[in-house]
Measured scan of single mutants.
Amino acid sequence: MAAGGDHGSPDSYRSPLASRYASPEMCFVFSDRYKFRTWRQLWLWLAEAEQTLGLPITDEQIQEMKSNLENIDFKMAAEEEKRLRHDVMAHVHTFGHCCPKAAGIIHLGATSCYVGDNTDLIILRNALDLLLPKLARVISRLADFAKERASLPTLGFTHFQPAQLTTVGKRCCLWIQDLCMDLQNLKRVRDDLRFRGVKGTTGTQASFLQLFEGDDHKVEQLDKMVTEKAGFKRAFIITGQTYTRKVDIEVLSVLASLGASVHKICTDIRLLANLKEMEEPFEKQQIGSSAMPYKRNPMRSERCCSLARHLMTLVMDPLQTASVQWFERTLDDSANRRICLAEAFLTADTILNTLQNISEGLVVYPKVIERRIRQELPFMATENIIMAMVKAGGSRQDCHEKIRVLSQQAASVVKQEGGDNDLIERIQVDAYFSPIHSQLDHLLDPSSFTGRASQQVQRFLEEEVYPLLKPYESVMKVKAELCL
């Protein structure tokens, strides 16, 4: 049975990233139509530049190519590739079939990587351009969430054990800070992308030097003109047959890092959902379990974690691919890159769409948070109580021993009897502590235990987050809708 299948058929496997999760716009960027249309555009740009620099290419040939950029006979191309065992030459023939007058000058002087690699770089750039505003929107939604809850005390956790208090907004800023680093890295790697350009079979530009009869300047002009037509500021000066596969490492490393950030955020949300302090959106008709109707599973956060793990592992592909590119190139890269580049971007696209949807509907339960604080705060307040007693004339050592005994009794009630923490009640009825009984409410005010959390939130948002989001103001209103 021949390899390949009808990918629109229910009898043929289709990647869930495309069929179930990723956005239509990201799927289109990695589609065959987008790819092969870009090949034709690159052939047109090459012909236009070659004509401008004096090669015998007519206006009629150029116009014929322009008129057929979208006229792609995919069936013919597939048949040609089956016959020739070469995808680029299959599309040269297919393009030439609908451009008979231009057929002889299509791909003039070029090698397969002229269309293959340059198209990949265009796709990487455009895919990054799709991700950047999506990530900015996630940051914006979380920034709104953090600002609104900047002063809401909550129990902090280290080692997932109760620690000092923080605020809900401050905790959210930990998430935002990681995503801001990801946004900066995505922008950097996007701006650092260079075009492969017009380089020939081993990167020496020998074929173009021959076409222009040894004119170095025209060869350099050709490279520059096509690079500018493709919208790049610069091209690699040095290439082998391909652009260095280190570029793929750079791009997928940034995406993998984004995956790590999203995994951490969504894990926190899942843990908070278990504590009943916070939940992701839950639709009115949504079913959490087929057997347990009360369940409210954090399905979206779980999906993000599941896909983020996949995204983090994909960076190993370009690392290994770059390491086995012998001399000017081997074909070890080809099949692998067809999979890992598309999957990385479709996965990143999915987790950003999902995280935006989550961040637009996060639900906080202040009463649950308050109750958990009441359970733990008495123990945390013991040092403040000791200091207040010393100020009232008591002995630190005597007070410490009193607190120690009462704390152990209260802990026994919590752990052995399943009761509430009654340390404060014990202190309130103990005559030894009568000098500070009137101060206990103040000493137990949760806001006095959150330090500068709310001020940190305000400063972080104003100095770091809002300036970073400013270039994306025009796209901030787009909502994230999930079908599944």
Rank of each mutant, 00 (worst) to 15 (best):
C483A: 14
S290A: 13
L132S: 09
E370R: 12
C98Q: 05
Q41G: 03
G104D: 10
K246F: 04
E328S: 08
K229S: 13
S323M: 04
A102M: 05
A411W: 11
L209I: 11
L346T: 05
Q356R: 12
E81C: 06
M278V: 11
T227K: 02
L186A: 01
R40V: 03
R371L: 09
E250R: 13
I122A: 04
E148T: 04
A260N: 14
R196V: 04
Y34N: 06
L461A: 00
F212M: 07
G4K: 10
L132Q: 05
T242Y: 02
H107N: 14
H91Q: 08
G169H: 01
E220V: 10
D59N: 12
Q320E: 08
I424L: 09
L128C: 06
S257R: 12
Q241C: 04
R309D: 11
L69V: 03
L155F: 06
D11M: 14
Q63T: 15
Q164L: 06
L55V: 08
H442Q: 02
Y114G: 02
D332T: 08
D182W: 00
R33C: 12
K233G: 02
A431T: 06
F157C: 01
D248V: 13
F28Y: 06
V247M: 05
L255E: 13
I123R: 10
G96N: 15
L423V: 04
G259P: 00
K187N: 15
T38F: 15
S334G: 11
Y466W: 14
F327V: 05
A335D: 04
Y21L: 01
P435V: 06
A102N: 06
K82E: 05
D268V: 14
S23Y: 14
L132C: 12
L341N: 12
V465D: 12
K82D: 07
H442C: 14
H437C: 01
T202L: 03
Q210C: 07
V465E: 00
E48W: 12
G451N: 00
L444T: 00
D6M: 12
T350L: 10
W45P: 08
H400T: 07
E343N: 13
L484M: 14
R190K: 07
Y114L: 13
M292D: 15
R14A: 06
T94R: 02
K66H: 02
I72F: 15
D398R: 02
M476D: 09
L469T: 12
D420G: 13
A150G: 05
A260R: 02
L423A: 14
G240E: 06
V138G: 01
K199Y: 07
E473T: 07
M476E: 13
C172N: 00
I176L: 03
Y294N: 05
K66P: 02
A150L: 11
H159Q: 02
F433P: 06
G393K: 11
G96L: 06
W43L: 09
Q416E: 10
D192Y: 09
L484N: 12
G231Q: 03
G288Y: 13
L155A: 04
E280V: 03
H159T: 02
Q439W: 02
P435C: 15
R190S: 06
N185L: 09
D441T: 03
D317I: 02
C304G: 10
I238L: 07
M476P: 14
K224E: 00
D192I: 05
L186Y: 03
P100H: 00
V115E: 06
C399Y: 01
I105E: 04
T167K: 03
S151H: 10
Y243C: 15
T350M: 05
C113G: 10
D11G: 01
L53V: 07
E70A: 10
E80S: 01
I339N: 10
T244S: 10
D441W: 04
N357D: 13
D333E: 05
H93P: 01
Q439Y: 14
E462T: 00
F157E: 03
T450K: 15
D191F: 07
Q61R: 05
K224G: 02
H442S: 05
K134D: 14
A206P: 14
N384G: 10
I427K: 10
S15V: 12
D191A: 05
C266N: 02
A256L: 14
L155G: 02
